[in-house]
Each structure stands twice: as C-alpha cells, then as structure tokens.
C-alpha cells in the first residue's frame, strides 16, 4: 500500500508575524507533515502584517524537507489583492487557488485547489486537472464517499479531504469582527487579532454553534475526521489536510501520522485529539454525509 501523506493547510486566523514565525519554525523541525501551506487566505487587509515573515518561513520549511505551497486569497476584491494573486501564481512552487481569479494566471502549471473552490463532481475535477490541478481539497460539505466518487473517476488528481480543524463555512464581503465592535471593514482596527482561533458564536439558548474570524465564518466545533487508513484507500484518497489552530499542532500531526501508519486506532486518535486544548468539541458529520455538526464516530 502506498503511503498516505499529510498536509498542513494555511492559517486562517490573524496571527502576528512573530507567532507565525514561531509556529512554522516548530512545524519545520517537529511536525510529521509532508506539505505545508503558507500565506493569507481570508483577508487581504492582513497581508501587510504577515508578508514580511514568509520568506524566512518558506526557507526554513524547505530546509526541513517540507513541500511548500503558496496559498492565495479566497475572496480577492481590490486591485492590490488581485495583484498579489497574480504575483504568487508566477512562483515556481506549488500554489493554492481559492478563487477562479487565480486560474488564468496559473493555468498550465501545477496547482492545488483549496476548500473555497467549488469542485463538486468529476467533470469539474477533470476540468481543473486539465488546467493544472494536481491536488484538490474539496468543499468541506462533501462526504468521503462523494470525494471517493471523484477520486475513482479522476485517478490523475490527488484528493485531500479537510480532516482537522474548525470548518471554513462561509466567507463574506462584510467583516463580522468589525461589525461586532461597531466598526466598518475599511477601518476595522484588526480586532480579529484578539481571537487566535476565531470568536465563539453561541445561540440565544447557549448552544455552541459557529465562530467568526473577520470576514470568515467557521464552525464552533472542531472537525476531527479520523478514518481507518483502509477506508481512505477504498475511496482512492491518499492525503489529508490539517488546519492550524493554537493547540499543539505538532501533536495533532503526530496523531494523524500514527493513525495513517496504522499505529493508532481511530478511537485512540480521537482520544488523543480530545486531550489537546481544542477550541470546540469534536465533530465529523460532513465526512459521513451528515450535517457537519454531527459526531458520527463518537456515536459509533
């Protein structure tokens, strides 16, 4: 059986440059992941803060033998944001496309599609593969079976289900952190920086439900899909994506590595994850074609 690979997706949150540098230094040295995404995906206004740290981060990761992917914005709007996409798409490294805006600039060279791009069926997957898609991280609401349907039909593309982290559920033109603080997006004061895993959104009856991160809305719960390696192989899936949080991501990666190597049973992996400082309870409904907040493995 060929080995399974692990990807660390882009950081969705507005972490200060120092925190990013520290985080990736540890990932480079200690995390058993094969591929690491870097770059701002959620909000173009944050880019001036993080941009300066990326050259060192990339160098460090590559020295440690990681494959680096440059992630691009999910909802580019301004001229500056569009230009940043164009520049990143010119790079020789792999690039992650999160909006069709990037496609003309990258077509013909290899790229990854992120969970913000609507790839729902084998025809769309083939279309993107024809333009250069090498890895597809499908929309989070697709089940493993649906992903497997695409993977079987398109063996030349690698499919990478979103396996760990708060689920990226929506993106808006409006900044909810700014709105919550009585501000507008254009003069937002970067209040999203205070919530390094997003800010919890509960219902009026006190149910944990969602989380906001600037213009992004995530699940409050942490998607923690821990399948049997054989279940992944049966769906022709050979790679999983882990999404960064402030909890010990080296430990998270270690648990998934052990799970994929067959050294940990799924329930042991879930138990290991549950002992970390996660921002929410664990769910996995989407992977099982259920509502995203359902927890199928825990019930089983």
């Amino acid at each position: 059986m060929p080995p399974f690979a692990l990807t660390l997706g882009p950081v969705f949150f507005h972490w200060p440059a120092e925190r990013l540098a520290d985080f990736y230094r540890r990932i480079a040295d200690e995390a058993p992941v094969d591929r690491v995404h870097v770059g701002e995906v959620v909000c173009g206004k944050r880019m001036p803060f993080s941009d300066p740290c990326w050259p060192d981060v990339i160098e460090r990761l590559e020295r440690a033998g990681k494959e680096v992917v440059l992630s691009t914005l999910a909802a580019p709007a301004t001229v500056r944001e569009r230009r940043s996409i164009d520049e990143l798409c010119g790079d020789g490294r792999l690039v992650e496309i999160n909006d069709i805006t990037a496609l003309p600039a990258r077509s013909g060279r290899p790229f990854v599609t992120g969970p913000f791009l609507n790839v729902y069926n084998e025809v769309a997957a083939a279309f993107l593969a024809g333009h250069g898609a090498r890895t597809i991280c499908p929309p989070v609401e697709l089940s493993l079976t649906a992903i497997g349907g695409m993977a079987h039909a398109r063996p030349q593309v690698e499919f990478e289900p979103f396996a760990f982290g708060r689920l990226p559920l929506a993106i808006s033109g409006r900044c909810y952190h700014a709105r919550l603080h009585g501000l507008h997006k254009d003069s937002c004061q970067f209040t999203c920086e205070k919530d390094a895993d997003g800010l919890a959104v509960d219902t009026l009856d006190g149910q944990a439900f969602l989380a906001i991160n600037g213009v992004q809305t995530l699940s409050n719960q942490v998607h923690a899909f821990c399948p049997e390696p054989s279940a992944l192989a049966a769906q022709a899936v050979r790679r999983l994506r882990l999404s960064p949080h402030t909890c010990d991501m080296v430990e998270v990666a270690g648990i998934y590595r052990a799970l994929l190597d067959g050294r940990l049973e799924p329930q042991e992996a879930r138990h290991g994850l549950s002992r970390l400082d996660l921002p929410g309870t664990m769910v996995d409904g989407y992977a099982h074609a259920r509502p995203g907040w359902h927890s199928v493995a825990a019930a089983g």
Binding site: N118, P139, E141, L169, A170, T217, Y286, P291, W293
Partner: peptide, 20 residues
C-alpha cells in the same frame, strides 16, 4: 450576507445546502 456559492452554514446545521 455571505458570498453566495461559498456558504455551507446551512449544511453544517441541517445537512442540506444551496450548492448541493
């Protein structure tokens, strides 16, 4: 309010979404 076609709030709660 969300960018249409990029919103999975509905399937997160109910299992059914605009896209699918």
């Amino acid at each position: 309010v969300m960018i249409e076609g990029r919103c999975y709030l509905s399937s997160y709660a109910t299992g059914r979404s605009p896209n699918l």
